[in-house]
Every structure is written in structure tokens, then in C-alpha cells.
């Protein structure tokens, strides 16, 4: 990302820079808006995108160099299905992490198992009525957002709070980071509207910026 945006105020996961509630709140929002973008735009999701997308303009500008423009709901739904759900015989952008991380390019591989276990250990479970897998991009991004709800609201946070949160975040966000370049490439190749290209660009650059290694 271009350095001209850098104000030099690094927000550390730990150490002297500390980890404040403002950071947690902002990170939660960033993961959440990405989660919404990569979710099927049913009426409620679409409504939330309509209401909140604009508020995240600086975020998208910073990581994609432009903001996502919402298209009419029916068009967005068709585009989402075409890209991520079912196309004529194949899915251009598989939204499941196992597909990218496990060797046989199938769903529900070992990565899903590890993600599911990690979520469970962190105290979260997937809503069973959803009929979805835990390694779906939107679910993982929501999980990452929920990590920050674990940040104690009392000020100031413990000195090692950032490290603790990073530890919780790392397995899933790390998996996301591994898959993000390929997903971004596929989105760029197949998307008909810019909104998902912006989302893909932002996802990869944002995760890179988190420096989760």
C-alpha cells in the first residue's frame, strides 16, 4: 500500500503502543463490513450495506484505492450467486477456505476442522439453521470481528490484550490471508461489477497490513 497514508502511528498488538478500545472497535467494524460484503445480499444484509457502507469509505479508500458502489439488490444477488454460489457447472470464486488450503481442492477438509475447533475453543459456534460451513469467507470474517467483542470494555485494557486478541485471531485470519491472493485474482477475473473487486482488493491488503505472521 502507498506509504503516503502512513502517519507513523503504529497500532501495536502489544508492547508500548498498547491496544486500545478504539482500535478494537475499528477492527471489528472492518471485519464486519467485509463479512457483510461477502455474504449473500438478502434483504437484511443489503439493508445494512446500504446504511453502513458509506461510513467505511476511508477504509476502502485506504486498502483498495476506491470505494465500493452498491448496485441494485437484484443485480447484486445475481452477481453474488454467479460468483460465489453456483454458475453453469462451476463456481468461479469458491468462498470456502478448505478449497484453497487443502491439497485436493474440495470442501470441508482439514482446514474446516481446525477452524471449527478454534471457534469452539474461542466460545463460538455456527448457527446450525444457517446450513453453512465455518470456513465460508463471510463466517470467518464475522468470527474475526467477534474476537474484538472479547476485548474487555473496561479501560485501560491489559497491556497484553492486543497479543491475546492476536492469538485468537491469528489462526483464522492467517488462513484467510493465505487464500486471499487467489480469491482476489479470481474475483478480478470473473466479477462483472466493481463492488466485489473492491472487496477482494481490500480483503487482501487489509489482512496483509495486519501483519499476522
Amino acid at each position: 500500500m502507498p506509504d503516503e497514508h502512513d502517519d507513523g502511528q503504529g497500532a501495536g498488538w502489544g508492547g508500548s503502543a498498547g491496544f486500545d478500545l478504539e482500535t478494537a472497535d475499528a477492527l471489528q467494524g472492518c471485519f464486519l463490513i467485509l463479512s457483510l460484503l461477502f455474504r449473500y445480499p438478502g434483504p437484511e444484509v443489503y439493508q445494512n450495506l446500504s446504511e453502513h457502507l458509506q461510513g467505511f469509505e476511508p477504509f476502502f479508500q485506504a486498502y483498495a484505492g476506491r470505494s465500493p458502489r452498491l448496485i441494485p439488490q437484484e443485480e447484486l444477488q445475481a452477481e453474488y450467486v454467479r460468483l460465489f454460489v453456483n454458475n453453469r457447472g462451476f463456481v468461479p470464486v469458491i468462498p470456502y477456505l478448505s478449497y484453497y488450503r487443502d491439497s485436493n481442492r474440495l470442501l470441508a477438509g482439514n482446514s474446516l476442522k481446525r477452524i471449527r475447533d478454534h471457534m469452539k475453543r474461542t466460545g463460538f459456534v455456527l448457527d446450525e439453521d444457517l446450513g453453512e460451513l465455518e470456513d465460508h469467507l463471510a463466517v470467518l470474517l464475522e468470527f474475526c470481528a467477534r474476537i474484538f467483542s472479547k476485548c474487555p470494555r473496561a479501560e485501560p485494557p491489559a497491556e497484553d490484550e492486543g497479543v491475546r486478541l492476536q492469538t485468537l485471531l491469528q489462526p483464522c485470519a492467517g488462513y484467510l490471508l493465505e487464500a486471499a491472493p487467489e480469491m482476489r485474482g479470481l474475483i478480478r477475473e470473473h466479477a462483472q461489477y466493481d463492488i466485489y473487486r473492491v472487496a477482494g482488493d481490500t480483503l487482501e491488503n487489509f489482512l496483509l497490513d495486519l501483519d499476522l505472521q
Partner: peptide
């Protein structure tokens, strides 16, 4: 564990509170 090298300006301009309330809540 390395220190976080995020550029705060890139995301600190946003607030997740309202969105979290509208979705997770």
C-alpha cells in the same frame, strides 16, 4: 509475536460500533 505494524489511519477513521449493533446485535 511481532508488533502490529498496521497503519492506524487506514482503519481508525471508521467505527464498528453501529455496524456491530445493527448486525451482531
Amino acid at each position: 509475536m511481532s508488533a502490529m505494524k498496521m497503519n492506524r489511519r487506514r482503519f481508525l477513521g471508521v467505527s464498528g460500533g453501529a455496524l456491530a449493533a445493527a448486525t451482531l446485535g
